[in-house]
Design a protein around this nucleic acid. Structure first.
Length: 536
RNA sequence: GCCCUCGUAGCUCAGUAGGAUAGAGCGACCGCCUCCUAAGCGGUAGGUCACAGGUUCGAUUCCUGUCGAGGGCGCCA
C-alpha cells in the first residue's frame, strides 16, 4: 500500500535526522482540501520539540530530502502550513483505483475484517400487539443497514426479532380484542387503536381468551412482517419469549444465577446482584407475587443469543437506554464479557408534513403506521431518510420532501446520478462504443478536475465502509453517496462521454469511469438497502 | 438529584481516534441549455462550532464546570 511506502520513507528520513519513530506512530491523513495533496503527515509538528527546531523548518528539511529520492508512486512532496508534509501521488497510481473498482465489481470495498465472526443483530422487536408504527421505522432501517455493513466487511450476520408474546401486555391486548368483539367497553388501559376493532371483526367467533390472545399475536406478527417486507427487511429468526417459558429456559437461568451466588431472595422477591456488576442498584427478577419482571426473560434470551453468537448488537429506542446497565450487568453475572454486547440507542424522530409537525397521540391509540409512511413516500425514500443522520441525534424530516420526485430530495439526487450514468452508457452504446476494461496508461487521459473528483470519491469508498461498519454508522455511507452523486452530476455536466470534439480514446476512457462510478454508487445504495434504478 | 444522547449557517444536518481557510442540502440573490435526463452545474451572501475555564505547537473535536433540548432513573413493559 502507498501509505506504508510513505510511512517507511518518513521513518527513514527521521532516523537520518536522529529521531527514531515507530511506523505506527506516524499518522497519515487525507487532507480535507485537495490542494493539500492526497496524503498528509503531521510528523514534523509532533517531533519538532524533540529536535529543538521549528516544525516548519523540520518539515522543509524532510521534504527536500524526500524530493531528492522520491518514494515509488509519489509525484511530489510539499511542506505546507505550520509544518505539514503533503504527498501528491502520481496520476497513474491514482487511476489504479478504477481498475480495482472495475475488477471487483459489486464487491468493491468489501473485506474480511470481521473474520467470519458471528454477530447477532436484534432490532425492531416490537410487541405483537398491533401494527408497526413510525416509532419503529428508524430502528428497522438502521438495524438492517448495519447488518448489511457488517456482512460486507466479513461478519456472519444474523438478523433477529424478539417477540414479547407473553405477559401483561399480551393479556391486555387479548382482552381488548375480546371486548371489541363483544361490543363491550375496553378494559382499563386497554388498546384503543382503531385497528383493534378492525382485527376483532375478522377474528373467528367463539374463541377463549387464550385463543384470542394467540390469534392476535399471530395476526400482529404477520402484519408486522408484511410491513417489513415492503421495506425489504427480512429476519432470520423471530424469537418467541413464550418458547422460553415452555422449554424451561427462564427457570434454568434463574437457578444458575442463584447457584452462582449472584441472585438472592429478599422481601419475598428474588433479586439480581446487578450493583456488583456496574448497575446503579440491584434489580428484581421475581416479584413477590411470583411473576417475572420484564428483565428475567430478557436475561434468558440474551444468554440464548450468546450461546449462538460471538457478538450481540441490540438496537433500542431512546426510552430503553436506562436498561443498558442492568442488561450488561446481568450478562457479566452470567460470566459473559459485556464488551461483546453492544447496545445502539436510536433517538426520536419528529415527522413534519409541509412544515407542520405530525402529531401522534398515543393516548387516543391513534398512531402513524409504518405502512402508511411507506405508502406515502416509498420504500427507498423511507430507508434513505431514516438513515440520513446519525442515530445519536434527534431527527426531523418532512414527509412531503421525502415523497417529492425532485433533486432537493436526497434519495432522488443520488438515484438520479445512477440513472444518468446508465443513460450515458446507453447513449455510448448507441453510438457504437462498448465498455471494455482499458489498460492503466489509457486511463491516464482522465485528468479533468471532475474526473479526478470521481476517482478520489471511489478511492475513499473502502475506508468509508470500513469506518461506517466499525462505528455502526450507516449514515456515513449516506454522506459519501451524497458527495459522490454531486461529483457524478458535475462530471455529467462538464464531461461529455460521446460528442463533438471528444476523441475515441477519451470516450473509451470515460466509459471506464462511468462504469466504475455506477458500480461505486451501487455498492453504497446496496449497503443501505436502497434500489439503484437504471432510469427514472 | 443522578445517568444517557445531543447543542455547528435562517432551516435540516455532516465533520471531530486533535490539525491547515469549519462543509453540504434547502431557503435568498446572481449566472449557465445547438450535444449523453436543466430532475442538472456554478457563484454570492450567511458562523464568537451553546457558554466559561483547562490540557496542547495546535481544540468545533479531549477534560471540568455552567446553561439549554430530549430521554431514562419502578416488585411497569
Amino acid at each position: 500500500m502507498i501509505t506504508e511506502t510513505i510511512k517507511n520513507s518518513l521513518k527513514k528520513k527521521l532516523e537520518a535526522l536522529g529521531i527514531s519513530v515507530a511506523t505506527d506512530e506516524i499518522s497519515l491523513e487525507r487532507p480535507a482540501n485537495r490542494e493539500h495533496g492526497d496524503w498528509s503527515s503531521n510528523v514534523a509538528m509532533v517531533t519538532s520539540k524533540r529536535l529543538g527546531k521549528p516544525a516548519r523548518v523540520l518539515a522543509e528539511e524532510i521534504v527536500e530530502s524526500l524530493n531528492a529520492d522520491p518514494p515509488k508512486g509519489i509525484a511530489e512532496v510539499i511542506a505546507a502550513g505550520p509544518g505539514f508534509i503533503n504527498f501528491h501521488i502520481s496520476t497513474v497510481l491514482a487511476h489504479e483505483v478504477l481498475l480495482r473498482v472495475l475488477e471487483n465489481g459489486n464487491r468493491y470495498g468489501s473485506s474480511d475484517a470481521g473474520l467470519g465472526k458471528h454477530v447477532n443483530v436484534e432490532f425492531v422487536s416490537a410487541n405483537p400487539t398491533g401494527p408497526l408504527h413510525a416509532g419503529h421505522a428508524r430502528g428497522a432501517c438502521y438495524g438492517d443497514a448495519i447488518g448489511n455493513l457488517l456482512s460486507y466487511v466479513g461478519y456472519e450476520v444474523h438478523r433477529e426479532f424478539y417477540m414479547n408474546d407473553r405477559g401483561l401486555q399480551m393479556n391486555v391486548f387479548g382482552r381488548s380484542l375480546q371486548a371489541r368483539k363483544n361490543n363491550e367497553p375496553l378494559p382499563d388501559d386497554g388498546y384503543g387503536g382503531e385497528y383493534v376493532m378492525e382485527w376483532a371483526d375478522i377474528m373467528p367467533e367463539n374463541l377463549t381468551l387464550e385463543e384470542i390472545t394467540d390469534w392476535g399475536c399471530e395476526y400482529a406478527k404477520t402484519d408486522q412482517q408484511d410491513a417489513l417486507n415492503q421495506l425489504g427487511i427480512h429476519f432470520d429468526t423471530w424469537f418467541s419469549e413464550k418458547s422460553m417459558i415452555e422449554n424451561g429456559e427462564i427457570d434454568r437461568v434463574l437457578e444458575d444465577l442463584i447457584t452462582e451466588g449472584v441472585a438472592y431472595k429478599k422481601d419475598g422477591a428474588t433479586w439480581l446482584s446487578s450493583a456488583e456488576f456496574g448497575d446503579d442498584k440491584d434489580r428484581v427478577l421475581i416479584k413477590s407475587n411470583g411473576e417475572y419482571t420484564y428483565l428475567t426473560p430478557d436475561i434468558a434470551y440474551h444468554r440464548n443469543k450468546f450461546e449462538r453468537s460471538d457478538w450481540l448488537i441490540n438496537v433500542w429506542g431512546a426510552d430503553h437506554h436506562g436498561y443498558i446497565a442492568r442488561m450488561k450487568a446481568a450478562m457479566q453475572a452470567l460470566g459473559y464479557d459485556s464488551e461483546n454486547l453492544s447496545v445502539q440507542v436510536t433517538q426520536l424522530v419528529k415527522l413534519l408534513r409541509a412544515g407542520e409537525e405530525v402529531k401522534l397521540s398515543k393516548r387516543q391509540g391513534d398512531i402513524i403506521e409504518l405502512r402508511s409512511i411507506i405508502e406515502e413516500i416509498g420504500a427507498d425514500s423511507t430507508r434513505f431518510m431514516y438513515l440520513l443522520q446519525s442515530v445519536d441525534s434527534k431527527q426531523t424530516f418532512d414527509l412531503e420532501l421525502a415523497a417529492s420526485k425532485a433533486m432537493d430530495n436526497p434519495v432522488y439526487y443520488v438515484q438520479m446520478a445512477y440513472a444518468r450514468l446508465c443513460s450515458v452508457e446507453r447513449n455510448a452504446n448507441e453510438h457504437g462504443f462498448q465498455f471494455s476494461l482499458l489498460p492503466i496508461d489509457e486511463l491516464g487521459l482522465l485528468v479533468h478536475s471532475r474526473e479526478l473528483d470521481i476517482i478520489r470519491g471511489l478511492e475513499i469508498l473502502p475506508e468509508t465502509i470500513e469506518l461506517a461498519a466499525r462505528e455502526l454508522a450507516p449514515h456515513k455511507i449516506v454522506t459519501w453517496l451524497r458527495d459522490f452523486a454531486n461529483s457524478v452530476h458535475g462530471f455529467h455536466h462538464d464531461c461529455y462521454v460521446v460528442g463533438d470534439g471528444i476523441s475515441k480514446e477519451l470516450t473509451n476512457a470515460r466509459l471506464n469511469l462511468v462504469v466504475a462510478s455506477r458500480k461505486g454508487l451501487k455498492v453504497g445504495l446496496d449497503l443501505l438497502g436502497v434500489t439503484a434504478p437504471k432510469q427514472m
